[in-house]
């Protein structure tokens, strides 16, 4: 399974990509929302893990753009945010995210959510 990980924080990107790789995923990375939208089209990932507070174009806007493009709208997106608040979850879902998880990630829980979205298609 090919995962597009969108995260501007270098350490978070490094950690999560290594842990996903260890669990057998192919990981490609974007560091801002604009890059994420471009790569969603060019790389064709099976799923996108999207940080929400991103430079250039934020995660909510990037999600809206991915979901607005017929070529990429079928790709499931899981929002990752540091704030485990109800309004963040609602905001992410309103932008078009298919699921929501909080950082720091519980890797097994995240993988469970990823599988549910990709296999459930």
């Amino acid at each position: 399974m090919k995962v597009l990980l969108v995260e501007d924080n270098e350490m978070n990107r490094d950690m999560l990509s290594r842990r996903l790789a260890r669990n057998g995923y192919e990981v490609v990375m974007a560091v801002d929302g604009e890059q994420a939208v471009t790569m969603a089209g060019s790389v064709g990932p099976d799923i996108i893990l999207m940080d929400m507070s991103l430079p250039v174009v934020d995660g909510w806007e990037a999600t809206r753009r991915v979901k607005a493009d017929p070529a990429t709208q079928a790709i499931p997106i899981i929002a990752l945010t540091a704030h485990a608040m109800a309004e963040d979850e609602k905001k992410a879902r309103d932008a078009g995210c298919d699921d929501f998880d909080t950082k720091p990630v519980d890797i097994q829980r995240l993988i469970g959510k990823m599988k549910a979205l990709v296999d459930g298609q």
């Binding site: 350490m11 978070n12 950690m15 999560l16 842990r19 260890r22 540091a82 950082k103 720091p104």
Partner: peptide, 20 residues
């Protein structure tokens, strides 16, 4: 709290990576 969480993310994440 945001500033505290960021390094804490790294502590938790890398310790789990090393534990694996």
């Amino acid at each position: 709290s945001h500033e505290l969480r960021t390094p804490l993310n790294a502590i938790i994440g890398y310790s789990e990576l090393l534990a694996e």
